[in-house]
């Protein structure tokens, strides 16, 4: 049974990737799970400089989901390279670094620094964080901005680059195509949905940042639809995510067109989810006589009467 999946030049041992912002810098989980057993892990979004992030409360639960407005608290790229990357390397983790800039130049500079560091498998371009004022989503909400960031990073590095797309646009597939045309090796989607929750007793927003990003099972059907739409328009690999909490959820994304998947919020609930996901995928493949996980990608059966 072949669980491997290819993301551009990368071959992952299985399609399960820990999502950025939900797995710290990976090192937090080094004593909890075998990092090398994951397809890959994506570390928390990094700017050049350290960032404090937003004041608490930073998360709030909503029906089958949660809002977060962490505000990209982070140690900055230099401390990551010096302190955390060697640990990840020592554990043989396939490390994808999520980078975020307030300018196109900052993305390119981050890409250059990380290209020189040993143990970085790929870069995920955060052009979709809904929680910060400057940087990130300002690029991800404009086709020109998306193209500019991807092209600048493409010129700065030979590492595989994976723009992470926001669902907070009218037509996410057009952004996937813009990324593909600009030289992206793959796209990942979706980041969180911009959302808000209010305490009716106090009339105060439940997050200090007022708005935050919605994740968890609540968003899964919308994310599946968006992956499906992107699959119709691009030929580069797609990494799907949004509320995946079981192997069946992951397979749903793969059938919609995802070559690999990321798991975020579910890791908070069950940090040992990874073996369950691999076992579940194997069981499904055995039951359905599928030899290669890659054969599931885009294999949704629309039937004769489907309109699309």
């Amino acid at each position: 049974m072949d669980l491997t999946t290819r993301i551009g030049p990368l071959t992952l041992k299985n399609p399960f990737i820990a999502a950025s912002g939900c797995f710290g810098y990976g090192v937090e989980y080094a004593d909890v799970v075998d990092l090398a057993s994951l397809g890959a892990l994506v570390v928390k979004g990094l700017f050049l400089a350290p960032r404090e992030g937003h004041p608490p409360p930073r998360i709030v639960e909503t029906p089958s989901g949660m809002l977060n407005a962490i505000g990209l608290q982070g140690v900055g790229v230099h401390r990551f390279v010096e302190e955390h990357l060697p640990v990840l390397r020592g554990r043989h983790a396939v490390t994808i670094v999520n980078i975020c800039g307030s300018s196109v130049e900052e993305y390119a500079e981050l890409a250059r620094i990380l290209s020189d560091a040993e143990g970085v498998a790929a870069l995920e371009l955060n052009i979709s964080c809904p929680n910060i004022k400057a940087g990130g989503i300002q690029f991800g909400c404009s086709l020109v901005g998306t193209r500019d960031v991807v092209e600048a990073v493409r010129r700065a590095t030979r590492l595989p680059i994976i723009p992470k797309l926001t669902p907070n646009v009218t037509d996410v597939a057009s952004f996937a195509r813009a990324a593909e045309e600009a030289g992206a090796d793959a796209v990942s989607l979706v980041n969180t949905f911009l959302a808000m929750a209010i305490d009716v007793e106090t009339r105060r927003p439940k997050l200090s940042n007022v708005m935050g990003g919605l994740s968890g099972p609540a968003i899964r059907p919308i994310a599946v639809r968006m992956v499906y739409e992107c699959r119709q328009l691009v030929s580069i690999p797609i990494i799907g995510m949004g509320g995946i909490a079981s192997a069946a959820d992951a397979i749903e994304f793969m059938l919609a067109g995802a070559n690999a998947v990321q798991v975020g919020t579910a890791n908070f609930v069950d940090p040992f989810i990874w073996t369950r996901l691999v076992d579940g995928l194997r069981a499904y493949m055995a039951r359905h006589d599928v030899a290669r996980a890659a054969d599931l990608v885009g294999a949704v059966d629309l039937g004769a009467g489907a309109r699309r």
Partner: peptide, 27 residues
């Protein structure tokens, strides 16, 4: 006891401010 997402350091939601060696507060 702060609101916690994961309990393992993965989510960065349960932060409090402490003064570091530089005297400045950090989450």
């Amino acid at each position: 006891e702060q609101t916690m997402g994961c309990g393992l350091g993965g989510c960065y939601s349960c932060v409090v401010r402490v003064r570091g060696a530089d005297g400045a507060p950090h989450y």
